[in-house]
């Protein structure tokens, strides 16, 4: 899980403190900085890897022009609304922020909302790194086990040596196996190759 980084732009000290204490208890979360009413976070965004901005209703109202000029900020924004009844700045946002918190929320609700958000983010980032090898990767593991070098594999599969290297790296990180001998045994026990087919000089 990659760390999710947060900044807070909340006028009330007490509310800020409360949110920070909840955020700090969540796994994989970093609060990078807190901003008060009259402080701007724009320059901070340029120099820091910020994943989420939690902003209160008053702050959002004040910065509405900023959001109009930089709508991409909405993707990072978690709104802290006073209550679910009031709807603010309908023109700018209509449910396009990733999450909304309410001042009236209980701790459990807040934790749940944030965890769903982080879970969703994790799902997106791990979609392409499943433990299962792709058919192409399986072929490469087979050829590696037969004792072929990367260059030989590249020639056989009509790939560039660089592409084969990339596949090898992905295989290593998916399986957590670096050595040829380790891959060979993996290939045997996963029926990718038989012992007879394995190179005699691994």
């Amino acid at each position: 899980m990659r760390i999710a980084t947060f900044i807070l732009h909340i006028d009330s000290f007490i509310i800020r403190l409360g949110l920070v204490s909840i955020l700090n208890r969540l796994q994989g979360v970093r609060v990078l900085k807190e901003f008060k009413a009259n402080e701007s976070f724009i320059s901070f965004l340029e120099n820091h890897p910020v994943d989420y901005i939690i902003i209160d209703q008053a702050g959002f109202d004040r910065l509405v022009n900023l959001y109009i000029s930089k709508p991409e900020l909405l993707e990072l924004t978690i709104l802290l609304k006073d209550s679910s009844l009031k709807d603010l700045n309908k023109g700018v946002l209509r449910g396009d922020v990733p999450a909304t918190l309410y001042l009236t929320d209980e701790k459990e609700t807040i934790v749940q909302t944030l965890q769903n958000l982080l879970q969703h983010r994790d799902d997106l980032s791990t979609k392409n790194s499943s433990e299962d090898l792709s058919p192409r990767e399986t072929t490469i593991v087979r050829l590696v086990s037969m004792g072929l070098t990367n260059r030989q594999i590249a020639e056989k599969l009509f790939l560039s040596a660089h592409t084969v290297m990339t596949h090898r790296k992905n295989i290593n990180s998916k399986l957590g196996i670096k050595s040829v001998s380790g891959l060979t045994i993996y290939a045997i026990v996963n029926n990718i190759i038989t012992i007879e087919e394995v190179s005699s000089l691994p």
Partner: peptide, 10 residues
């Protein structure tokens, strides 16, 4: 050699 190479690399 399959086994011994494996263990050395491991």
């Amino acid at each position: 050699s399959l086994v011994t190479n494996f263990f050395n690399d491991y």
